[in-house]
Nucleic acid binder design. Structure first.
Lengths: 347, 347
DNA sequence: ATCTGTAACATTATCGTTAATGTGAGCACG
DNA sequence: CGTGCTCACATTAACGATAATGTTACAGAT
């Protein structure tokens, strides 16, 4: 059964080999005081010879610290999360943490399950990209006294530490960009209905429209289906979407504000596969600026923010809590910027 | 200092509360025998009341199993790895494992460092996407008796368990597709020089050329720079690439076999940003079929394989070793298939 | 000659859980 | 009426590392 008995070298083994106590070995390897230079050298050499590797599990049990940060996000095949995870990994590693990524699939039940995992595994803290319906998860972290930070979405003011970017401003910039490129009949289109993000992006959209004097009749909120990429069957969602867009195009709508880049790609794909429409029939802008990190051959105008800053701030806030800070929740709002690549249709 | 004393509920706490021994609590919570139904019920209820969550760290130390699988890959911002990681996560979770993702940045030194982490944290096993120069990493896993599987790249026959797909066949299919769409002066272009993959893809490219009777003079191997996405500065790599491609175009070269989708996107982006060339000047095919998982508005012909099967087989092979199998290394070669989306230029 | 101090180690307890034994009460049975 | 057996728990010993104390030998002070 246990033929692959991993008999790792332990402090005990080194102790026996060098003829000192386990504690002395432990101290010697960590260069603590109270060990003579000669003994210290001998122990360290023996440890190297024997191929000793400290057992993090044992250390964690003793110290109560795992140096693990759990990151709960939608799923890694979504480039948005992929890029985020990469940035967080980097920032975490820089501070000596290992990350453990868990996927919620944007489902509050799975999210809670992942939270339970994070707690059971004694993570030092959790970075949560909260799903819509994350209340129970947050409640659970509180009751378990598990330090956590909310990223990207912040359901309620002062509820917890959070790192977000200026969503309203982002949507405002994107929409204004559409308008400045000559579009005056605008569609806000999305499959997503995400806590925090949706309301703020809608608000930014409205603000830009108001400012430009675009009447309500020239604004349209199109709730699409399948464009978020959750469903697999293309045929199912493309048809209805194209029908709606064709109709809107005939009514003179010529600008699309799309919730995020991933969704915009889906919509562009649909438009390009259609016989009657092309993605050039609409000015298109969205949010996330993923192309900047990925170098796609897609010319999508988008509003970006710094993934690196989001990661660094998340780790910073988390570390504060891990180290015992019990102050009021801190909210970090990062700036956004517009990147024009031509999909707005500006001549 | 330690104001956030996480005083979790332990078996001991439950034992004191119910007036039985710690062991009895342990048994009761795991529905082991030798505990009377009444006591069992009482203990479980108390545990629920007190909000008990088992401590995985302690369990791991005791049992010698962490139920953690470390995955060492290039980096999550690369959609190839993002999709892979997602599939592996899924397969691992299905079998009761949590994955710990570590990034090698395709750098053997970092890779070794991550391997050390995986060992120190007592992962049950490791899934490694080996970098070029992975010998020391593999050596380390062996000496630590750490079960591992190589995925995507297999440096040497019978060296270790491995899951790959038919690279030669893939490149052959892709190249033949180019030829069948009327291209007969072909460029193999790549920045990558990856162990295993590069030789096999080149071989497939050659095989298709040979079969179609394309003379050596009508084949070109272009070693690009920056197209793999490792460098940040676009201007640096685009110029030389476009110069090379312009020259090749003038010489009549009209088909590009690109190492992988991510690289093909970069090249298409460069072509589209050029004044003299467009991505329509070349038939383009590559490998990975990432669009199928991501729904990008990019019409790239590509050779795909099943991410799900790769993930499932990796976990399967790993579990065999984790459970003590010491048989000969197993190599799984998964089939590939071509997906045409039009970038080949077929009229 | 006794006391004190300290360098350099050793011992012991502990983190939370679980496997391997240990134990006492109650009951059946020859 | 003692033996054996089972039930239902308790006790003890790990897992590997580390913090909190103990211990010893020897140097120097008084």
């Amino acid at each position: 059964m246990q033929t692959n008995m991993k008999k790792r070298v332990t402090l005990q083994d080194i102790a026996e080999r060098t003829g000192v106590s386990v504690n002395t070995v432990s101290h010697a390897l960590r260069n603590k005081s109270d060990i003579s230079a000669e003994t210290c050298r001998r122990i360290q050499e023996t440890a190297r010879e024997m191929g000793y590797t400290g057992n993090q599990i044992a250390r964690s049990l003793r110290s109560g610290r795992t140096h693990i940060i759990a990151v709960i996000l939608g799923g890694l095949s979504n480039p948005f999360y992929g890029i985020m995870a990469d940035a967080i990994q980097d920032a975490a590693q820089y501070k000596g943490y290992t990350v453990m990524i868990m996927c919620s699939r944007e489902n509050p039940d799975l999210e809670l399950q992942m939270a339970e995992e994070a707690i059971a595994r004694c993570s030092d803290g959790v970075i949560l990209f909260p799903s819509t319906g994350c209340e129970k998860t947050i409640q659970r972290f509180r009751e378990a006294r598990m330090p956590f930070v909310l990223v990207a979405r912040l359901p309620g003011e002062g509820i917890a530490d959070g790192v977000v970017w200026d969503e309203t401003e982002g949507a405002y910039l994107a929409t204004r960009h559409l308008i400045e490129s000559g579009r005056r009949k605008l569609v806000y289109v999305s499959d997503y209905n995400i806590i925090y993000s949706t309301e703020h992006r809608m608000e930014g959209f409205r603000k830009a429209c108001d400012e430009a004097g675009i009447p309500e009749s020239d604004r349209c909120f199109l709730q699409s289906t399948g464009t978020s990429g959750s469903g697999d069957n293309e045929q199912k969602w493309m048809k209805p979407l194209l029908n709606s867009l064709t109709e809107l195009r005939q009514k003179g709508f010529n600008g699309l504000f799309v919730f995020c880049d991933v969704e915009a790609w889906h919509i562009m794909q649909a438009l390009d596969q259609s016989d009657e429409l092309s993605h050039n029939d609409f000015g298109i802008v969205s949010i996330d600026n993923l192309e900047s990190a990925l170098s796609f051959p897609v010319q999508l105008c988008s509003v970006g923010y710094s993934f690196k800053d989001i990661a660094a701030n998340s780790i910073r806030l988390l570390r504060k809590r891990i180290h015992g800070d019990t102050g009021a929740p801190e909210k970090v709002v990062l700036p956004v910027h517009l990147v024009c690549r031509g999909s707005c249709g500006n001549p």
